[in-house]
Amino acid sequence: MSARPSTLERERPAPPAVPSRTSYGERPGVAYLFLSPWVAGVVLLTVGPMLASLYLSFTDYDLFTAPSWVGFENYARMFTTDVHFLNAVWATVKYVLLSVPVQLLAALAVALLLDRASRLQGLYRSAFYAPSLLGASVAVALVWRAMFSADGAADRFLSFFGVRTGGWVTDPDLALLMLVLLGIWQFGAPMVIFLAGLKQIPAELYDAASVDGAGWWRRFWSVTVPMLSPVIFFNLVLDTIRAFQVFNAAFIVSNGTGGPGDSTLFYTLYLWQKGFVDFDMGYASAMAWVLLLGIALVTTLIFRSARSWVHYGGGDR
């Protein structure tokens, strides 16, 4: 869960949280008193460790002996000799590209379905939201593993249609797909946000479109999508960042190995293996920085593209 200044601040013109009158005689120190736990956290647990991990990424470090400087060797190793690293990047990119768009489409479809005056709407919305809260748990990952194992429920079900998979967990192509399905299954959170967004679209716009003879499809593309585009954008950014960091399900399904054949070796899973199984912590730090840069790059690209498809109320930008 996260948010970004530009989407959130743009809709409301700079909130004057404090009236811009003269000082009330409050001492500036009081603000820092309120902020002191947060400031301590920033210094000790965020900025400090960030700088330290940047330094460690240029070293050979195993937690127990002092780090020794190796220059760019960790980074060079990643992109040249380490096959597993490239497999991990590929598995993660495939996961993001498959799960994020389908999850958002499912979220939007169900939000449109639920966007209707009914006393049961609140109940339905909560029921669809529940998998989002449960999906990250180890318990659900175990269910997934059991359902998709050889001769499991998924196999039995597909065999009604004459399809025999022989177990998804052990098949390199299907293992990733079952994780993608688990990701899509948790579409409740973006769905709730879509639904709230749909409620803010003024009904007059739909009325005006209907008067002009627009059918359902036309109204969807010309009213709903543009009006909802800031919310679509918000969900897209959040979901992409989240999808790059999935860990639990891949760990449980492959029992920490990322198998079969590195097909579920997600980036964070490999980072964990390097850091906490091999104790190659310099390398794990370098991987963390590459992840940060990768996420920053992708987010920047999404923000760039937003100029051409995200509309903020009123003006046609």
Binding site: S2, T46, L56, Q245, T268, M281, I295, T299
Partner: peptide, 15 residues
């Protein structure tokens, strides 16, 4: 910091 992946502070925090 909301957007920051925790992995970037993970190893120094562990240390």
């Amino acid at each position: 910091t909301i957007m920051l992946p925790q992995h970037v502070v993970l190893i120094p925090q562990y240390t």
